[in-house]
Amino acid sequence: MLQYIGKRLLQLIPVLLGMTFIVFMIIRAIPGNPAQVILGQQASKEAVAALEAKLGLDQPWYTQYFEFLMNIFRGDLGESLRTRSPVADELWPYLAATIELAVFAMIIAVIIGVNAGIISAWFQNSWFDYTAMILALIGVSVPIFWLGLMGQWVFGIEMDLLPTTGREDVRNPVHAITGLYVIDTLIQGRFDQFGQVLRHLILPGIALATIPMAIIARMTRSSMLEVMRSDFVRTARSKGQKMFLVVYKHALKNAIIPVLTVIGLQMGILLGGAILTETIFGWPGIGRYIYDAIGFRDYPVVQSGILVVAFIFVMINLLVDVLYSVVDPRIKYD
C-alpha cells in the first residue's frame, strides 16, 4: 500500500510539471504586463522598463520558468508582484476560507445527497423517489448565481435571518490562528463567534452544495438500485435482518465506491475555487484571490495559487483511491 502511494506521488510530478508550464504560458499570453498595471496608464516607458528589470520580467521566458520551478522545488512559492509579500503567507488565509466553505458544503451535500439517493433506491418509484430525482435534476441545472442571489434575497433581506456576505461579523472579528474560523473560535472558546461563523457559512454553503448534492444523490440511487438486487441482500434479509440495516449496512457499503469517486471529484472542484459563489457572497477565498491576481497580472500568485489548488485536487483523488481498498478488501494495490 505504502509502495502504491509512493508510486502515485511520483506520478504526480510530471502532471504538476505539465500543469505549471501550461499556466505559466497562458498567463503570459494575456495582453498587458504587471509593471504597467502597477505603475498605471500614465507611467513612462523608462519607468515601466526599470520596474520590469527589477521584477525580473525582462529575462527570457525559459529563464523565468526555470527560476519559478527551482523556487518551487525549494518550497518557495514566490513573491507577489503587487504586494511584495511571499505568496505562501498571503495564500493561506484565502485557502483556509475556501477549505472551510468547501468542507461545510460537502458535508451538507453528502449527508443529504447520499441519504436521498438511498431512500430513492429503497422505495423506487415512490413519491419520494420521484420528488427527489426531480429536485436533483433541478439541482444540477440551476445557475448558482441565481440560487445564491435568491438565497440572499429571501433569507438575508426579506426574512433577515442570515448574513449575506463575508465569513464573520465585521464588528466582532475572529482572531485567526489556523485560518479555519470554525476551529479558531472553538479553540478560543468564543462560542458567540462560532455561531456567527456558522451562520455566515449557511447561505454560501447551500449554494455551493447544490450541484454536488444533486450529482451525489443521482449516483447513490443508481448504484444502490443495482446492489439492492444482489443475492447477498436477499441473504441478509433471509437471516431476519432489519431492512434498515440491510440497506444501510449490507447494500450501502457495496454501493459506495462510485459515490466516493464522485465525492472526490466534486470536492476537488469546490476547493479549486467556487469563484461565482465566492464573488456573490463576498467570501475571501482562493478563487477570488487568484481571479484578482489575474487582473493585476500578478504572475507568481496565479502560478503558485493554481499549483496549490491542483496539488490539493490530485491529493484528494489519491485519497479516494486509497479509500477504495479500505472499503473493498478485493481491491488491492501493489
Partner: peptide, 24 residues
Amino acid sequence: MRKVRGNDIAMIFQEPMTSLNPLF
C-alpha cells in the same frame, strides 16, 4: 416475520459466489 427468518426457517441459495456479501 423477521423473527421467523433465520431463526425458525433459514434458507440457502443457488449462487454461493454472489450470496455472501463480498465486503464483510
